[in-house]
């Protein structure tokens, strides 16, 4: 039935609370359906010289037109919602981890978006991508989840080896926490 592919596409995203793999097949099928409907609509209008006085012809033309618009809207909503979910996945620097779930265009969009946020931060001279949570304390106890090597802090270099515990200044390690290298221990 017309519109089924578009419904399945939106439903596919709606069912998942995270980011499911980009469904290129369904998008392609919706594009195919729209093209097919468009050709039928044009042929129908040409056959009656754009005269829609006959309710049967008019009704069919409106039906084709509405299905095309609905399909189009479903795919645009799908793409936009995926962008919001990718953005909210928190860590734009580790987009590589989401490699399998994103399309080439989404990867490019995310890279451009990251650049856009950086440019905005430069303009206002406030880094809006850091301090995502209200600071509770200046220092944090953290566990190293992945080897980070040696980092420089205000109090000198610190070697962060996997599975070691550290009590460090939050501002020094905020990025590493965001990237999943360190786990805060509350």
């Amino acid at each position: 039935m017309y519109g089924d592919h578009a419904t399945a596409l939106v439903h596919h995203l709606y069912k998942s609370s995270t980011l499911p793999p980009y469904n290129e097949d369904l998008v392609r099928q919706v594009v195919q359906e729209i093209n097919e409907l468009y050709i039928r609509l044009v042929q129908l209008l040409e056959s009656v010289n754009n005269d829609l006085a006959d309710p049967k012809i008019g009704g069919t033309a409106i039906f084709f037109h509405r299905v095309i618009l609905r399909n189009k809207r479903c795919v645009l909503a799908y793409l936009l919602e995926r962008f919001y979910r990718l953005r909210d996945s928190g860590n734009l620097s580790s987009v590589d981890q989401l490699d399998e779930h994103t399309s080439a265009s989404e990867k490019q969009l995310l890279a451009d978006y990251e650049q856009l946020v950086a440019t905005y931060s430069d303009n206002v001279q406030i880094d809006v991508s850091s301090s995502l949570y209200p600071p509770q304390a200046l220092f944090l106890q953290v566990k190293v989840a992945k080897d980070c090597g040696t980092i420089m802090t205000e109090n000198g270099p610190v070697h962060l080896r996997k599975d070691t515990l550290h009590y460090m200044k939050r501002t020094d390690i905020e990025l590493l926490i965001q990237q999943g290298y360190l786990l805060p221990i509350s």
Binding site: V75, L76, L79, L109, Y120
Partner: peptide
């Protein structure tokens, strides 16, 4: 305002690359 303009351009380009370019 600049952010809005740039983001609109990014999103519409993404729509075109992923979907709209295949339409009539």
């Amino acid at each position: 305002t600049e952010y809005t303009k740039q983001l609109h351009q990014l999103i519409t380009s993404h729509f075109e690359r992923s979907f709209l370019s295949g339409l009539p």
